[in-house]
Design a protein around this nucleic acid. Structure first.
Lengths: 337, 337
DNA sequence: AAGTAAAACTTAAACGTTTACGATAAACAC
DNA sequence: GTGTTTATCGTAAACGTTTAAGTTTTACTT
């Protein structure tokens, strides 16, 4: 490994001069600087991120928190898309991305300790239990953080527009003549709460009455529970004409249930998904769904975190809401009223 | 941040003593060591991975190479599952995981340089163009590597059993009475080549004649191209009775095509997927497919890489083949001959 | 010509560890 | 009592950077 010292010897100058020349500091003569740079290049010099981090106290490395407990963390296309764009943007800005977890090796540490241990300049928190005391400790620490789809007081977060998304869906369905709209939602999270609230609010605005039995719970990303919920809805004396699913993948459960009962989509039942994953666009009939802009969310999260890292003084916490778009498929029938 | 120095002052001993006590070296008195450890705990001491890495020349950090060009890198459940188990296993063994890429910030570097820059102890290479000169440079460097689903000379790799998988599929289909078996394969990669070779070999062993038109190309993870290939197969004068798809997700394209032509699965056409992703198990009829054990692959890759890192002297390159299992669904009809 | 300022470069300390080597004292052998 | 071993702890250098402060040389000002 070629170091500053090697170059300094080769050039006949001091290490400091080499360092300053390579970093473009102003107090090195142009001639000398160019010469040093050329020698560095010839010798194949690479800066040592570790030494730099030790000296500067900043590692140019950000942590990412994905919990694997649900085991659908990374598997979910929404999150893997976020992760990918986050990584790309961070790298564009000169930062690497490292996973943060509890319990690294024999050491047992919490997220905050892990981030400190690795000298992470900041952490993006996604897909975790936000009630976890360890998560809260990290968020309340001095380490810059950005949370995804959850907001802590005085902290920056990037949110998918769940309120707007649900509103658009309900309005779209309403415009297509539906008045008996059921909503199968996911397990109780802040995202779910927002969608439920927006669902009721929009229905009220439109003057739609929503029977209690039309709103039922399932589990995200679990077609079985959504299938079950679908069956219950179909058994109702007054069937809905349209069912909103917690996510596109869960809809598969509903699809199977409908098919089994000999009902066709959208003629006998209209359906809407959520997420806009690849699958939704290749199903026949194409699924009408609300596409969350995961790419933008990951990019924004990285950009905001790094901005916060680089100007910590003047930083004011931000709440960024990333809007999505309704992807119109052929799963909602237009019915005359 | 509390350092060894702080503890040494508090305890009235030297830094060296503290370091040795915390690392459990034998030349510190038991009494002193216990005292130092208790003080360290009380003061909330955390080792500094950066300083340690600089001193020891090993960062306890491994790199992971995922290319995003195809943009289906992380999105593919197969890879996200590998990534997840790789991460979990690495952390269990005391290593963190960092993404490696070209071009970090304003610096333009190749994979090898990036890995050196970050002091990665080793790199797992997955889902990339293995012909890329930059990848080859990395593999041929002194940095320990493990490749996934591709083998370089004298290098360790973890392979999914594509040969065995295809063999099992063909045999299963054969046992169910099929003799006219078509195979839609993915784009030309070493994985594809293995599957094609195994397909032909197994067919030959079983005495099945395979018309040239039965083997056609599509693109992995792309239902459209598989749909097109399906259409071509259906237009053949002598239709196959069973179609093997490049992967489960691509099969959706075939499913749509079959449905559109009024053909039902498996009565009018038998189908088999590949991968065993979640989707395959919730489709109706359930898709018969070959499940790749991505969890084991990621785990093995991490374990092998770390073993290689920790005993580089005695290391002999290994080729590990991870076998999968046939998941029998209801998409293959048993026909009498 | 004397003083000041700017430019170009060096010295040396610091970041937080680890570890080879040295030092001290107690314990032991004879 | 002398010499040797052993246990325990300290000293100091090293890993590869960055940077404040100092030094020398040159140029400029009046």
């Amino acid at each position: 490994m070629v170091t500053l010292k090697d170059i300094s010897i080769e050039c006949g100058v001091s290490q400091a001069t080499v360092s300053k020349a390579l970093n473009g500091l102003p107090d090195i003569g142009e001639e000398t600087a160019n010469y040093i740079r050329s020698v560095a290049k010839r010798m194949g010099y690479l800066p040592n991120a570790t030494a730099r981090a030790l000296k500067l106290g900043s590692s140019h490395n950000i942590g990412i928190l994905f919990v694997d407990k649900t085991s659908c963390g990374l598997k979910h296309e929404y999150f893997s898309e976020i992760l990918n764009s986050l990584k790309v943007e961070a790298e564009r800005l000169g930062y690497d991305v490292t996973f943060i977890s509890k319990d690294i090796g024999q050491f047992s540490m919490d997220y905050y300790q892990h981030a400190k241990y690795r000298n992470c300049d900041g952490v993006v928190i996604a897909s975790v239990d936000f009630k976890d005391p360890d998560v809260i400790r990290l968020v309340e620490s001095e380490i810059p953080t950005v949370t995804l789809d959850y907001t802590f007081d005085s902290r920056t977060s990037v949110l998918s527009d769940n309120v707007g998304g649900m509103q658009e869906i309900v309005r779209y369905v309403y415009q297509n003549g539906h008045r008996r709209i059921a909503f199968i939602h996911g397990e109780d999270t802040s995202v779910t709460q927002k969608r439920i609230a927006s669902f009721f609010k929009t229905c009220t605005e439109l003057g739609i009455r929503v029977p209690e039995s039309y709103v039922c719970a399932a589990i995200y990303h679990d077609p079985r529970s959504s299938g079950l919920a679908t069956r219950n809805l179909l058994a109702l004396p007054e069937r809905p004409t349209c069912i909103l699913y917690p996510d596109d993948f869960s809809f598969i459960g509903g699809m199977n249930e409908l098919e089994q009962q000999g009902l066709s989509i959208p003629d006998d039942m209209s359906v809407v998904g959520y997420d806009g994953i690849l699958l939704s666009q290749v199903l026949r009939p194409k699924l009408t769904t609300f596409r969350q802009d995961a790419e933008t969310m990951g990019r924004k999260a990285a950009a905001l975190l790094i901005e916060q890292i680089e100007k910590p003084k003047s930083w004011i916490p931000q709440l960024i809401t990333v809007s999505g778009e309704l992807l119109e498929g052929h799963s909602v029938k237009s019915i005359r009223i």
